[in-house]
Write a protein that binds this DNA or RNA. Structure first.
Lengths: 327, 327
DNA sequence: GTTGATCATGAAATCGATTTCGCCTAGAGT
DNA sequence: ACTCTAGGCGAAATCGATTTCATGATCAAC
């Protein structure tokens, strides 16, 4: 690749002038022309590494997520990418597999590559952001909090859990179970709390915890606990799934048992990805993942631009998409 | 962040020695100890930007894909990431939306960020790799060819199309349609060719093209053409879907028309992501996307390490997972 | 005891851009 | 006509690591 020096020589100016041309600093028209022509001839593209080293800041933002195979997070990624792209930033997608160690590695890389900022869906609430904060890099939390006082975008998880559960109650189900992610993950816990609030109110006598299962936020997790619930002496007649993949797993098991919804009622917090079920069968509280990504990216870009107002948290509400009563 | 100079001063050695300690070059034990201790105290992490500038090569590889929301590509990404990660590389995921322009942008970035190499699922067969080849960066093609003589990993697309179609024939279907992606995309075309070979052989009289539809490789594309096919005066009794998302779209439409498989036979080239259908309903030719990613990443790492044997192409075969006959 | 080889080490050059500093020139102000 | 200002421009410093080159020390071999 051509360097700024070669362009300078060909155009008969100093390297400084070439830099100025490409950075919109005042340069006489004739030199601008000469430089542009020389750059064109040599196919010059500025070396981003050198630029980053000198400016101490790159046009790359990191998006750190726990599960790249979950469509919820890829939808989020789309939102982030669209905003970033149109602001001239590129996005590095880092997949942590919900492992703190991998997460820490990627955060270190974000620092040592001088990335402009980080959007983080934390692997757990023990994520350590001291270093990246010390480095002065802005971080925006998505989907889950971090325990730090930073910008964030989260879903109204408890409300979503409530809405899903209430809809099942209205549809006439009486014994409503809940399967959700690991208890230590805020989103999992909050959605379960939403469910609990409704069932304890509606069915005061019963012990709700009998029908509550914490698992992983994955398809096989949903399968396992759904099997467990069906094996109960007195199985549930409906279930609230704490995220999209749990919902898929649960429905798979139900289908295998001949209990296709709405025979056994199912409500999912999050969308059913690529579902081939009739939309009337399953209630869904759609979470605006893409919108979350867009919002987070905009907040991050503001911080990168130097905004230093107090930390904000944006809460997005899910949207109930009820199963139509079977006809 | 602390720099190598500060560490050097604290440890009482030269910066060169600090660098050597971190790069495994011979240094006396006592200095190694002093440097490590100083680095620990100062929380020193080498600045990757400076390192990249000097070494003219970074430990980042780019994975350029046309659709990040397609689970096929995220599965591929997982494979790439696993291999890269364990070799100390990080992966930048770039989503092109199948647009040549975005693709070109990302390839330029790969060059100007000195990325070590690129794994590319090309947006089309017009992708221009001249610049990146001139820059000496290795490129491995995945899923689709590029028209350049470079390493590649592809699926046995025609074979997969055949296998899917043959299975429908064996199951007794007689009027087998095919829906696939854009004709100019190699994978779409080849899978359709596989279908065509079988139907012209098995049903010699009929005009196969009547039942062939090119569309996009997306869910809505599958929906549209499936509707078209059902609206024919003499609709098909089975359909081969050219990729996973087309399959989802087709099945959605069939479900809405009360034609849930296997009432109308469906065979999909690629897996049905997050399906809740009974596995007996739909035949799938599973494509080893993750394995493709692993293979491509290994090939790329070999090239990065300096391997310059002639270009290789690895062809991976899909695996037929037949629908069990309904019982 | 001398020679030569080996090895640890530091000084300084290097990667390619940005940016500070100061010079020079042209035009405005009096 | 003379001073002052401002803007264009180049020389050189800078970002932080790696790497070449030169030096000095150590040690084995003869």
């Amino acid at each position: 690749m051509a360097t700024i020096y070669e362009v300078a020589k060909l155009a008969g100016v100093s390297p400084a002038t070439v830099s100025r041309v490409f950075n919109g600093v005042a340069v006489s028209d004739e030199k601008v022309l000469a430089v542009r022509e020389a750059a064109r001839q040599l196919k010059f593209t500025p070396n981003r590494t050198a630029r980053t080293l000198r400016k101490q800041e790159s046009e790359v933002i990191a998006l750190v997520i726990p599960d790249i195979e979950n469509p919820y997070f890829t939808e989020l990624a789309r939102g982030v990418e669209d905003v970033a792209q149109s602001a001239g930033f590129s996005v590095v997608l880092a997949n942590t597999d919900a492992q703190l160690e991998k997460e820490a590695t990627y955060l270190q890389i974000a620092i040592s590559e001088h990335m402009a900022g980080v959007i983080l869906a934390a692997a757990s609430d023990h994520t350590n952001l001291d270093d990246i904060q010390a480095a002065g890099r802005p971080v925006v939390a998505v989907d889950r909090g971090t325990g730090y006082d930073i910008d964030g975008v989260v879903m109204a998880n408890r409300t979503a859990g409530q809405a899903a559960t209430e809809h099942l109650v209205r549809a006439g189900y009486r014994r409503i179970a809940c399967i959700t992610g690991p208890e230590r993950i805020e989103t999992a816990y909050e959605r379960a709390q939403g469910w609990r609030a409704v069932v304890t109110r509606e069915f005061p006598g019963a012990d709700p915890d009998e029908l509550l299962r914490y698992s992983t936020f994955r398809v096989d997790g949903g399968r396992d606990v759904m099997e467990e619930l069906l094996a109960l002496p007195e199985p549930p007649d409906a279930v609230v799934a704490g995220n999209n993949l749990l919902g898929v797993g649960a429905i798979q098991v139900l289908t295998e048992h001949g209990l296709t919804p709405p025979k056994l009622g199912v409500a999912v917090v999050g969308s059913l990805p690529f579902t081939t079920l009739s939309p009337s069968a399953v209630t869904v509280v759609r979470l605006p993942a893409r919108h979350m990504g867009v919002t987070a990216a905009k907040m991050l870009l503001e911080r990168i631009a130097g905004d230093d107002q107090p930390a904000r948290t944006v809460v997005l509400r899910g949207e109930l998409q009820p199963a139509r009563p079977a006809d």
